[in-house]
Every structure is written in structure tokens, then in C-alpha cells.
Amino acid sequence: MSEESHQVTTLPVPDAPAGVRPRRISRKPTGGDAVFAHTFRAIGASVLVITGGIGVFLAYQSWPTFRHYGFSFLTETQWQPEADVLGIAAVLVGTLSVALVAMSFAFPLSLATALYISEYAPDRWKATLVSLVDLMAAVPSIVYGLWGFFLIQPHASGFAHVLHQHLGWIPIFSVGTDADAAVPDASRYTASAFVAGIAVAMMVLPMACAVMRQVFSQTPAGEKEAALALGATKWGMIRTVVLPFGKGGIIGGTMLGLGRALGETIAVLLIISPEFVIKPRILEIGTDTVSALIAGQFGEANGIQLSALLTAGFVLFLITLVVNTLAAIVVNRSRSGAETS
């Protein structure tokens, strides 16, 4: 930068006597602005204290838990307050299995819905369909719980029986009963992680779908048209342009959904019958998740058991936090790509 331009910016008075220095500009707010800044800083600080306080409180509560039960708290499967044996291994596995069942339904369906809305749907329906997906996200989870319990469970357990009959040799589809019995034991196929997962999928779906659709809609139109102009079919265009472009959104949206699925309580509590066993057999009755454990056990808990429940909640929170953070990183990375192209 030349000397001249420097002079122009700093000296408003060209013939100022020597020794006069330009006024120093301070970014520090004064007067009313200072009051404004400090007031809102105080609000921000109080919210930080409230929200951060919960995290710290939960972390602090795990200290007595781990001192009392040791690290077997993470490996013990039983939750028997009478015998003073508490552990979250079984419920963690149950949480994961419900969430994975939910994702295996929600992932293909949300991908298809997002692709349909952004690529296939007629233009005049798009806004309505987007609103419908948002509405789906606003439906209370207890309603999906009722839907899963009363409408889906009879069909789902029938489907589970067929799966067991024909694919029972795969460990996750086996059920501890005779599949080909003349009168199959229908109750063995209800209240399972499979049925709960379907209800949870309904809650996860709109969230994942919204993220995916948003990323798909940012696909550069020029590249899509280029693919079509080169003679690609619609699917060829989607496969070579839309899907690679939206990869971040697909992964991120799925993980955001997974984060929600892990913490879902009331639909799971309504459907499953609690059982503290590490159970890979998702079609069979009985499983438990961390959040359903908390909802089911908090009433009788006191002292150390309450700490243990809070610790279970803290572990769940940490898992959700990691999943959500990874999702946010992936989604943000894909969006920053959209801005440059």
C-alpha cells in the first residue's frame, strides 16, 4: 500500500498542524449500547449456566455411580435395585437395536421421499409435500406410539413371524419359539425392538428427510441440465449428479435422525415389554432402552439408584451429542460446497 493512500485514510484534515493525532476509534460500546451489550451478555450467560449446568450436573452425578458400582456399571446387564446390581449394558444394546431398526426403515424411506419431492413431484405439489413432511415432524411422539401399538403391532408381528419362518437361520431374525408350530405363539412376536423401531422410524423420518431434501434442492441446476442434455435418463442424472452432490446431506440427515432415535422415550415405553438381556433377536418380545429404563424406574429410585439413572441418561446424552456433532459437521461441509459452486 502506498504512502499517499495511507495519509488519505488517516488524516481527515490535510493541513493539520504537526503533533495532532487522529482520534482513536474504540469499538467498546458506551452509554446505552454498553447497557444493551451487558444485558444481553447476562442473558446469554444465564442460558449458558442453565444448559451447561445440566451437562455438568449429569457428569457430576456419574461420580458416585462409578465409585459405587465401578466400571462394571457399563458391562453389567441386570438392573436389580433390590440386589444392588445395576448396569446399563443390556439397555445400551437395546437402545442401539431399536435405533438401528428405526434407521433401517427410516433411511430408505426418507431418501426416497426427499428424492421424490426434489426431483419427481410436480412443481405445484412440492410446497404441500414439504409442509406435510414438516407436519409429520410436529405430530407428538405419543400419537406415533398409539399408532405403532394399536395399528402396526398386529401386522408387524405377523410379518415378524413370516421372517422367522423363512429367514430364522439368520441370528437376528430367530425367535425363541417354534416357527412352524401349528398354532404359533403370537405373543412372542409382539412388544419387540422391531415393533418399537417402526414407531420410532416415523419420528426420525421427517427429520432426516428434511435435511436430505434441503441439500438435494441445492444441487446446481446447470449440472443437472448438463447430465440430461448428454442423454442421461432421470435416474442417470440423479445417480451421477444429485446423489454425489447430496452425499453430505444424506449422511448428516441420517445421523441427525439416529440421534433422535436414540433418545426417543414414550413410543418405546408404550410398545416394548422391559427385559434386561443383551438380545440380538430383534423380533422377539422384550428389550429395553435407556430412556424407557429411566421412565420406568425413576419412581422407585432414590439415592444411589437415582444417580445411576442420571448416569445412564448422561451416557445416552454423550452418545447423542457425538452423533449430532458428527452429523452437523458432515451437513455443514456439504453446504459450504454448495455455496462455492
Partner: peptide
């Protein structure tokens, strides 16, 4: 911190107030 706390499962929020 606020973004991190959106990951808090609602049941844990209830348990926090309960405790």
C-alpha cells in the same frame, strides 16, 4: 453449548428437574 444441549434427550431433561 446451546447447540450441544439440543442433543439432550427429553427424558433426561425431566429427570434433571426431578432430581
Amino acid at each position: 453449548v446451546v447447540e450441544a444441549m439440543t442433543a439432550l434427550p427429553s427424558i433426561v431433561a425431566g429427570l434433571f428437574i426431578y432430581t
